[in-house]
Structure formats: structure tokens, C-alpha cells
Nucleic acid binder design. Structure first.
Length: 291
DNA sequence: GACCAGGGTAACT
DNA sequence: AGTTACCATGGT
């Protein structure tokens, strides 16, 4: 892999295990817009980034080398060796061959902790398209303009302070529904420092999980999503209805409770459970495994 | 119109 | 400790 500069754009050449469509549409993130084939706008870290993929080239438009080193290489998880991860997973479990082959270009984005916390609170009992819609509503209402593309403005994800000052009714107007009090409460606790995002980053996985679950509206599944997508804890195995069905169908052969599925993932996939979850979720959901 | 969606809480046994 | 109704909202 090497990085080339082309006017205001950066080109990543010969990057393996990278498919921008799979990375964005595997269900881990919500703020992106498809503008063409393998061509997307990503809203992250208070920036608008256009990423287009052509053959073995990934083009990052209007980006400096400095931003790449500081933000995007980390966000896109560029320096993680996914070939090695996939090989190790396959030696642990050859049943993964199909999902890994089909979804070979997944990478787990390193997303902002605060944004994943609110996003996955919104996600409960909602479909992915609705989640995206509600997050866009919130960003337009409470965020700030951070960029433009083809005459359309794009907004940052609101800060804790921006959300802490609103009301339950205003949040419901953004179609948050019964999640509105959860969002408001969480925002006020983060804004006041009662919940410290930086402490979560330093805490052990189990300590961080415990703190996350203490937030009203955050249970096991949402806490694990924040741990995996927003805190880089790649050993956790978020277990939603889909992953539950998939694991039951592919491995356990019977209805199983959450703790049994967690135990299975930990012993079966070990430290790589988060990656395995991502391949299984995206492939299994698309093919309705177990449904 | 019932049923379900990348669940969680509170009020029940 | 283990179930169950309910929570907004939009799509099928």
C-alpha cells in the first residue's frame, strides 16, 4: 500500500481488504451518502469526506496529507492487517469462509465515541434506514454546517452541549420517539461531565461496559456497539436479533440466551470476536440466515 | 391493519 | 431471577 498526492486529492494504492461500499453499508455507521458506484460522502469528525474506489485505488477528495495522518488513516483503520485477521479467523472456524469471502472488504471504522453512543441509543427497535433519517434530522437541527457538495450543505453531528440544551418535545419532532428522554438525559450527563467520554476510553472493556449500561436507554447490545465501533474494543460481540438468529442457526442449533451466545463468541472467536461479528452480521442479514 | 424493526425499561410473576 | 407489556414511528 502507498499514498500518493494528486492535486488536492489523496490516492491510496494497492490497499487490500478494502471495499468502501461494504465498509459503509455493513451496518456499523449511519452518516454517509452514496453519490455513485463505489463513490460516497462520509460525514465524520466534523468533516465531509468524499471517498471513491476504482480498481485498486481509493481516492480521498479534497484532503491533506496532514488530515489523512491525523484523522482518516485512523478512522478508516488503514493500518490494520485484515488479511491476517481473516486468516486467523478461518483457522479458528472454517464456517466463516462464505461470509468472509463475500464480505472481504469490511473494515471496522474507528468512530467518535459520543456519536456512536447517541446513534445506537437511537437504533433501538428501528431499521437502519430510519436510524439514518433520525440522525440526519438531529444533525440538521442541532449541528453546524461543515461542508457542501453539489449545492447541498452537510451538518456535523451535534455536540453534547448542542443536544443538552434542547427539549423532549423538540427531540420528538426529529422523530426520536420514546428515545427522546434517553438522548436528552445522556447529553446532559456528558455535557456536565457526570459521564466522561475520556474516562471511557481509558477504562477496561468491562469497566466501560458497566458505565455505559448505567446510562438509561443503554443495555447490553448498545453498550457493546459503542465498545466495538466507538471505543475500538474489537473483542466484543454485539448481539442483536440478527446475530442471535445467525449464531443459533449456524452453530448452536437451538434457541439460546444472550449469555450463552456471548460465551460462544468469546471461546470460539476470542480476541477477534468483533471482526467475526461484522462478517457474520452483514452476510447473514443480507441472506436472511436463520430467518 | 397486524406485524416487525441492529432493544431497553418497568412492572409484573 | 425470569417473563412480558409497552415504548414512537415508518415500512411491508
Amino acid at each position: 500500500m502507498k499514498i500518493l498526492k494528486d492535486n488536492n486529492n489523496l490516492i491510496i494504492e494497492d490497499v487490500k481488504s478494502f471495499n468502501i461500499m461494504q465498509i459503509l453499508e455493513c451496518g456499523q455507521c449511519f452518516r454517509f451518502y452514496k453519490i455513485g458506484e463505489l463513490d460516497y460522502l462520509i460525514i465524520a469528525h466534523n468533516r465531509v469526506l468524499r471517498v471513491e474506489q476504482k480498481d485498486n485505488q481509493v481516492i480521498l477528495y479534497n484532503t491533506s496529507m496532514e488530515d489523512f495522518e491525523k484523522i482518516w488513516s485512523n478512522y478508516l483503520d488503514i493500518h490494520t492487517d485484515y488479511n491476517s485477521i481473516k486468516e486467523t479467523l478461518l483457522t479458528k472456524d472454517s464456517n466463516l469462509i462464505e461470509s468472509i469471502n463475500v464480505k472481504e472488504g469490511i473494515r471496522i471504522l474507528k468512530q467518535d465515541t459520543w456519536e456512536t453512543l447517541i446513534s445506537f441509543i437511537i437504533s433501538q427497535n428501528k431499521q437502519i434506514t430510519h436510524i439514518k433519517q433520525v440522525i440526519e434530522n438531529l444533525s440538521k437541527e442541532y449541528g453546524t454546517i461543515i461542508g457542501e457538495h453539489n449545492g447541498v450543505d452537510y451538518y456535523s453531528f451535534p455536540t453534547p452541549e448542542q443536544l443538552a440544551g434542547t427539549t423532549d418535545e423538540a427531540l420528538r419532532n426529529c422523530k426520536t420517539g420514546f428515545r427522546a428522554p434517553y438522548i436528552l438525559d445522556t447529553s446532559q450527563k456528558v455535557a456536565s461531565g457526570e459521564i466522561d467520554i475520556n474516562e471511557l476510553k481509558k477504562a477496561s472493556t468491562s469497566e466501560a461496559r458497566e458505565k455505559l449500561i448505567s446510562i438509561k436507554g443503554v443495555g447490553n447490545k448498545i453498550a457493546d456497539c459503542v465498545l466495538l465501533y466507538g471505543l475500538g474494543r474489537t473483542e466484543v460481540f454485539p448481539t442483536d436479533v440478527w446475530i442471535k438468529r445467525i449464531v443459533e442457526h449456524m452453530y448452536l442449533k437451538e434457541e439460546s440466551k444472550l449469555d450463552k451466545i456471548q460465551e460462544f463468541a468469546a471461546t470460539h472467536f476470542g480476541e477477534l470476536a468483533g471482526y467475526a461479528q461484522q462478517y457474520l452480521f452483514y452476510y447473514g442479514r443480507e441472506n436472511k440466515i436463520g430467518k
